[in-house]
């Protein structure tokens, strides 16, 4: 048995806490984010572009009097842009003490995952976006990619967002 397989089975004996994940779709893949970081899920509404904003910022929305910056999740994940549909949602999250929105193709459900059910993603690739992946999990025969929202932007980018 290989070392990596042993390390996976080793997790089962250790702290096997259950975490809840909100799942969303981007293109054909399903992603999960920690439910504790999700504030709410909004239907798509007009996103006002901000002149001079970085490429990863789609624009801003007004959420009950508060301005929320919306991130272009597709470009962040290296995916091609697509048209907005009825299923498009803005997931409002709190990360790095900031509230931002991420635009996703659709939101699916909330799932419960034990720590032992989460595996590390293969450690290949130097691309920045490879760091977003916290782990992967087999969910009813479908692979769920768990996203580390804190890694979604670099420290400089988080600082940049404070200016909006």
């Amino acid at each position: 048995m290989s070392d990596e397989r042993r390390s996976t089975s080793g997790k089962k004996d250790a702290n096997d806490e259950v975490l809840q994940w909100v799942t969303f779709k981007l293109e054909k893949e399903t992603y999960g984010i920690n439910v504790m970081q999700v504030q709410e899920v909004l239907r798509y509404s007009e996103i006002a572009p901000v002149p001079g904003a970085p490429l990863y910022v789609l624009g801003i929305i007004n959420l009950r009097g508060n301005v929320v910056t919306v991130i272009d999740t597709r470009s962040r994940f290296g995916l091609d842009p697509c048209d907005v549909t009825d299923n498009t949602r803005v997931v409002v999250i709190e990360s790095e003490k900031q509230v931002i929105g991420i635009l996703v193709d659709s939101v699916a459900e909330v799932v419960y995952l034990k720590a032992s059910e989460i595996d590390d993603a293969p450690n290949v690739g130097n691309d920045e976006s490879a760091q977003f992946i916290q782990g992967v999990s087999n969910r009813d025969g479908e692979l769920l990619i768990l996203v580390d929202l804190d890694q979604l932007l670099s420290d400089d980018e988080w600082d940049e967002l404070k200016q909006f």
């Binding site: 893949e29 994940f77 290296g78 995916l79 993603a121 293969p122 290949v124 690739g125 691309d127 920045e128 976006s129 490879a130 760091q131 977003f132 992946i133 992967v136 087999n138 025969g141 479908e142 692979l143 990619i145």
Partner: peptide, 18 residues
């Protein structure tokens, strides 16, 4: 299932049983 940020040659992760 393709994972973002991986090299081109990394096709993705395939589930086979568990």
């Amino acid at each position: 299932t393709s994972l973002m940020g991986k090299p081109d040659w990394f096709k993705g992760v395939m589930l086979y049983r568990d």
